[in-house]
Amino acid sequence: MKSYFIIALSFLLFSCLTEDSEEFKFTLPSHFPQPEYDFSKNKITKEGFELGRKLFYDGILSRDGSVSCGSCHIQSSAFTHHGHDVSHGIDDLLGDRNTPAVMNVAWSPTLFWDGGVHDLDLFAISPIENPVEMDDKLSNVLDKLRGHKDYPNLFKKAFGSSEITTDHFLKALSQFQLRLISANSRYDQFLLGDQNILNQEEKNGLKLFEKNCATCHAGVLFTDFSFRNNGIKHFGDLGRARITLQEEDEYKFKVPSLRNVAITAPFMHDGRFYSLEAVLNHYIDQITPSKNLDPLLKNKINLSESDKKSIISFLQTLTDKEFITNRQFSEQ
């Protein structure tokens, strides 16, 4: 009787495991271009992903344990800090830029609004060490993890060694973030052949979008990843020039993706616009001439009230419900 039970149990376990790895299968979306990230240097495994997720949601990455990556990158808002113009960090201190979405990062050639980091694997050091975000030191965080009751074992499972190195720590975080792929919005289903999934107004919006917005918010990722001055009033943040120190880069910021845009307000690098209407109004009649204003914006974008409504309807089709509710991506 006892042995039957064990056999049954092991079947159960086995089926759980296979089911899990089925679920874990990692494929890149067929309608996306080749990713920028070099997956050969960091093969995604279930254990690595799960370790990355645990780290992402663990306040141990901050000085006093109060702030995790997930504090400002909230899944239900496509991993942004919904409602906050600029990020709120440790001791309720304020950053100076709006929290970008952690989404489709495998395709992003640079990170941050100013593109200051060129490799996802080197990204996490910045929020960890930023005095207004997590305010710790990477070496100290690694020491805390080394002394933790669970982490050395989790690193061993993920990387074959319980020694917690800078490399493995950062790559575990990358593994989690690389899987945060949003590619299943209604618009994606439309692209993949379901012509009826968008209604007429949304289709009109798509046409207007392609005509007026898609030069910069280009392609299936809705950004060309360039840095541009989009004509907002500037208050001293030099944007890309902080990184390059070149005058020709002053006031330029990275063109953000518009996937899940309807749930990631507020908008712009400093979160100044709280609605999509406000953003469209900006492009229609509030462009402010300044140094390096993008030439594409020197002529007004003409959109009627009904055009605006259509574009906003279309932008709402970019919301990916699966992405924002997928339990795999949530704190466990």
Partner: peptide, 10 residues
Amino acid sequence: AQGMYWSWNS
């Protein structure tokens, strides 16, 4: 290299 690295501008 802790302290000898800019994380915001790799």
